[in-house]
């Protein structure tokens, strides 16, 4: 099994007295798929920010394999093999779908390397594969700015696939998608898992059930419960948080 193990322990993030994360622990094994759920403000997005280097933890350990992620910036962490799909899809509107995918393609990232870059056969084939996989082959030369919301979500997933990361962090992939699209996404993610580790943050419990993986429940920045979807749904603490006290 390729890839490294993601390990978070005792992670806290404090914004101006507000504890967004509180002594959080999480372990994702190589090749594992993990769903993270929790009510609004539970710290799901902050957790992703910490893993990808956007936010520095106030205290705690974040490692990927034997590398300390708290000492690295976003670009280095991305190059390490951690890809992220944002909650709000951010694609490059001025570039075409093809160019968006090309930018994400695993290749040297420096300015000079980019200037001398020539898209070779293997890279082109890879882009074509992913474009087909996300159903945007027909629109490959349209500017990303004119895609629908769902298509932008797909494009962003496609860009993450292009990076070929060891670990994928997927924030609310099915928000705003139709049922058919949601189903398609679930199948896609299930296919990816196994080759890559995947962490999915989602509100939609049906979708999480469809993923059929281990579930972590966050509440107020700390781990509330962990286990199968049936286990956590029957955990009285989870019920209390979701249904009110």
């Amino acid at each position: 099994m390729r890839g490294r193990r993601l390990y978070l322990d005792g992670v806290s993030v404090v914004f101006d007295g507000f504890r967004a994360l509180n002594n959080l622990a999480l372990v994702v094994e190589p090749g594992e798929m993990r769903a993270v759920i929790g009510p609004n403000g539970a710290g799901k997005t902050t957790m992703m920010d910490v893993i990808t280097g956007k936010t520095r933890p106030t205290s705690g350990v974040v490692t990927f394999g034997d590398l300390d992620l708290t000492r690295m910036d976003e670009a280095s962490i991305a190059n390490l093999g951690i890809g992220r799909k944002f909650q709000k899809p951010t694609v490059f509107d001025a570039l075409t779908v093809f160019e968006n995918l090309e930018l994400a393609l695993k290749a040297p990232r420096g300015p000079v390397a980019c200037l001398r870059w020539h898209l070779a056969g293997a890279g082109r084939t890879r882009i074509e594969e992913v474009a087909a996989e996300i159903g945007l082959t027909e629109r490959a030369h349209d500017r990303a700015g004119i895609l629908s919301h769902g298509q932008k979500q797909w494009l962003e997933i496609g860009m993450m696939l292009m990076q070929d990361p060891d670990l994928m962090l997927v924030d609310e992939p099915v928000a705003g998608m139709t049922d058919a699209e949601t189903e398609h996404t679930a199948r896609l993610l299930a296919r990816i898992a196994g080759r890559h580790s995947v962490v999915v943050v989602e509100h939609d419990l049906e979708f999480v059930r469809a993923l059929g993986c281990k579930v972590t429940v966050l509440h107020e920045g700390t781990l509330l419960s962990e286990g199968s979807i049936d286990h956590v749904q029957n955990d009285p603490r989870v019920v209390e948080v979701y249904l009110g006290r």
Binding site: S76, V91, F92, A94, L103, G110, R116, W117
Partner: peptide, 28 residues
């Protein structure tokens, strides 16, 4: 016209996103 030019436009429109793709935007 090169990929570098496209990285620049991407930085112009969403610099943070480019960082998460693994580009060191500072040097670009």
């Amino acid at each position: 016209g090169t990929k570098y030019g496209r990285v620049l436009t991407a930085i112009r429109d969403a610099e943070n996103r480019v960082r998460f793709l693994g580009y060191d935007t500072t040097s670009h």
